[in-house]
Design a protein around this nucleic acid. Sequence first.
DNA 1: TTGTAAGCGTTATCAC
DNA 2: GTGATAACGCTTACAA
Lengths: 343, 343
Amino acid sequence: MADGRGQGRATITDVAERSGTSIKTVSRVFNDEPFVRPETRKRVLDAAAALDYHPNMAARSLVRGRSFLIGLFYENPSPNYVVDLQTGALDRLHDERYRLLLFPCESARVVSGKLLQLARTSGVEGIVLAPPLGDDPHTVNELVEARIPFVRIAPTTALDASPTVGIDDRAAAREMTDHLLSLGHRRIAFVQGDPAHPSNTQRLESFRAAMAAAGATVEERLIEQGNYTFESGLAAGRRIFADRQRPTAVFAANDDMAAGVVVAAKEAGLDVPGHVSVAGFDDSLISRVTWPQLTTIHQPTYDMAHAATDALLAVIEKRPIKQAVRLEHQLLVRGSTGRTTPL
Amino acid sequence: MADGRGQGRATITDVAERSGTSIKTVSRVFNDEPFVRPETRKRVLDAAAALDYHPNMAARSLVRGRSFLIGLFYENPSPNYVVDLQTGALDRLHDERYRLLLFPCESARVVSGKLLQLARTSGVEGIVLAPPLGDDPHTVNELVEARIPFVRIAPTTALDASPTVGIDDRAAAREMTDHLLSLGHRRIAFVQGDPAHPSNTQRLESFRAAMAAAGATVEERLIEQGNYTFESGLAAGRRIFADRQRPTAVFAANDDMAAGVVVAAKEAGLDVPGHVSVAGFDDSLISRVTWPQLTTIHQPTYDMAHAATDALLAVIEKRPIKQAVRLEHQLLVRGSTGRTTPL
DNA sequence: TTGTAAGCGTTATCAC
DNA sequence: GTGATAACGCTTACAA
């Protein structure tokens, strides 16, 4: 309005003119700086409102040398998990000046070596790495060397390379295994996710340890391979149940795969949990959608993302931080596990 | 490096110096402008690579008066749908300079009147409105008046207020109803989502019309209310099956609710589809996770988001556009529907 | 308590 | 083909 450019939004100069002050004063008002007389402040605010003025983020970013952009990198194929993650981060960012940029790394769109480059190009000030990205040594090294602030969710390696937020995966897997053992199961199958994914390995190892502690034998042919998707769980379940010596329980490293196992069981004419118990991990939405609902481990994904974002902002703003935040998990016993009924 | 500021990223000036050219030339190279001799271009590129130079988005945005930010507004509570939406938009933006900003509007975080303000504050250049946001007349009016480019996915009202992308909801609902009718069902329940959500209304109306056309009676007590969530479908299913005169088929306005209905059926000791058929809408991941898998309508959510984003970029860049893009839907007959077996 | 002036890293104008 | 130089809208010394 003040200048002829019809389309143009009002600038700080327009507000200064209209309020009869200087741009510096307007700037002060919009940055909540002290030393502005209340009435001056009001004049500025009124003018701004009348002009529908909003500070130009680009200009602000430029002069401060900051982008106010946070990158969330994830490669989890479960939409439930992803949305929890996003919501946690977004909620923490609410009311902050920061914006969230999404970097879905599925389908190798982002190869290991590319992450840093992507971060650079997009100009993010900091990064939240969701599992399993936080366990890629190459990526972690690059990030450390580039001195880009980053926080990892549920990493299992190089724990001091960055602040971390997570749960106790081993304890959780042990609790689940103990739960199955306590129901009388001895022949238990395990469906793992990506074996290169350390948290998966932790769950598997903890499963083995708990089995050993109970004097139960882990049969290697019952350790199946999946990749965290529902489909991979379905395939694994089919293989498991094709065996004559089928297990009486299956523990999958996440809910999506466990849901697949449940469907495979149904296909094979097996009742869950009558003929076979199935346990998952994550407490994602899908665990409540199967029938029966899945016994699982509640992972506070939302809270972890929230806490991770919180920690990231602290790093960026050079506030004191906690290097490792450990959140509570919870064993949720639902309908998919029970005592075995002989066929 | 060129300047003493240790942390600072290389700037266009650094590249110019190192390559023995001027900043204008560097700018030309990075904007693919013509009139740069190949060897000069190479010198610039080499210098940039050596300096790990990346153009500063803030400066670029400032001088061009553009933010390169696109806003995706949605309020759908289904993570599967949301992720499809995001992925479609993100994939279209890939390789473009634009970035995607997420605006989840659930839980009334964004009230109707606030959307415009949010868009202004965040400086987005354009907006993709996912259903049901595109049917809020207030929002649509505001956006039109503010002259902010926006595209709506699957709106049902004010179709010429903006470019739109969608499927033929009425035809889809009719096909599904006909499918159920063809299986011999006559007493069919319908679980609707938010009644204020026109696409829901369209589905319901089309259901009524198809029923009427087949001479089947729609029983009002069998029109149940949900809100698109799994839980609401579960609740609706429980109410439906509590009735002595239960229907032989249930048509839910989306998959999440249909999945809830399936679980309610199981709770009631009913076999699906033996005792009751259940149909959904969307072909979201959840439809493949239930057992049996859901008969549903494939909504190309990913493609719609992709096309909507594509249209939005066209609007922003003032390229010619198609005002209405209609994508194909598909009836997917899976295990959850079949002929009724008398109890 | 308020204002002036100097940049921030680009792109755009217009000479050369 | 190429290069000075002026914006872009804002924050931040530094004055007043």
